[in-house]
Write a protein that binds this DNA or RNA. Sequence first.
DNA 1: TTTTTCGTACAGTTTATACTGTACAAATTT
DNA 2: AAATTTGTACAGTATAAACTGTACGAAAAA
Lengths: 160, 160
Amino acid sequence: MNEQQNENITNKIILEFGKTIEMFDLTPLEARLFAFLYLNEKALTLDEMSEALGKSKTSMSTSVRSLVDFNLVTRVWKKGVRKDLYQANFQLFKSFMPTYINKWIDATNHQLGSLEEIKGKLKQDNYEDNKELTIIKKRLNKIIDFHLEVEKSFRDMKKD
Amino acid sequence: MNEQQNENITNKIILEFGKTIEMFDLTPLEARLFAFLYLNEKALTLDEMSEALGKSKTSMSTSVRSLVDFNLVTRVWKKGVRKDLYQANFQLFKSFMPTYINKWIDATNHQLGSLEEIKGKLKQDNYEDNKELTIIKKRLNKIIDFHLEVEKSFRDMKKD
DNA sequence: TTTTTCGTACAGTTTATACTGTACAAATTT
DNA sequence: AAATTTGTACAGTATAAACTGTACGAAAAA
């Protein structure tokens, strides 16, 4: 009854919290797994996760590895325990938000580079100018501006 | 030669710009389609899109409809032209960014509601208190705080 | 050393997503 | 009215993503 009750509540929270985590570009399973780990105080084994989420141990292995790579989960050592133990990092906002923002900044910067390169090539090679090309050039500049604006938005977001 | 040259450049831009647009949660095809429309001054028909992107007309129909729903593309009327014409909205930042931010705000608010509901139920029904439940409650509060913080971040982002 | 246990690589399967082709209603043209 | 054209619903197909089960090396236990 007690167990059942806790599990019921846990599942509801996992469901809702998981949806939010998915928005940070994690897969549904990774999201649920993180939520589950977060709700548990003590570090858990792959078998415990597998049992709790009803998914294969292999899935847990790969998913938890992703979470570690994303710096959302930490592998924990405990004397006498042979199995690997994993624990969710407790600082949610710091774990998720900066990484997400950086992802946007990095991506826009990278695209910016590619677009500038195209622009440079257009100037260098003296292409046969025609009406259509003129429009393309104009739009390319607008696209570059757009990337700058997006990048700035996320950069500003960091300053808090 | 002239045509070929323009198409070549257009494709390069579509490729790079498309990647960025995908980050705003559009499918790869929607992203490329928008990029393509944006690079064209005049409004285009489904057949022209289909021809240019090498995808079926059906795909164009559904994709362009999505873009219209997202307020990224506008249907345009032109006298004497029977086919439907579509044109990309030119204000990129205004088209993409506010929608994206609102999506986050709406989603976090919605989750917040669900989580508060769970919290309320936990208080109301006097559950048998145990150590595990105490931890769950504590974590639930942290999760709610997290949602508030995320929501605030995106709300602040709007103020520019 | 032999046996057991653990984590993960890998191949295969299931499930979800993206895309196409046919068909057809609505609108336009002949 | 008949014929053509246009956009899209729908069903089916192809492609990608998620997930599982078996197998096996590494490490620990017997």
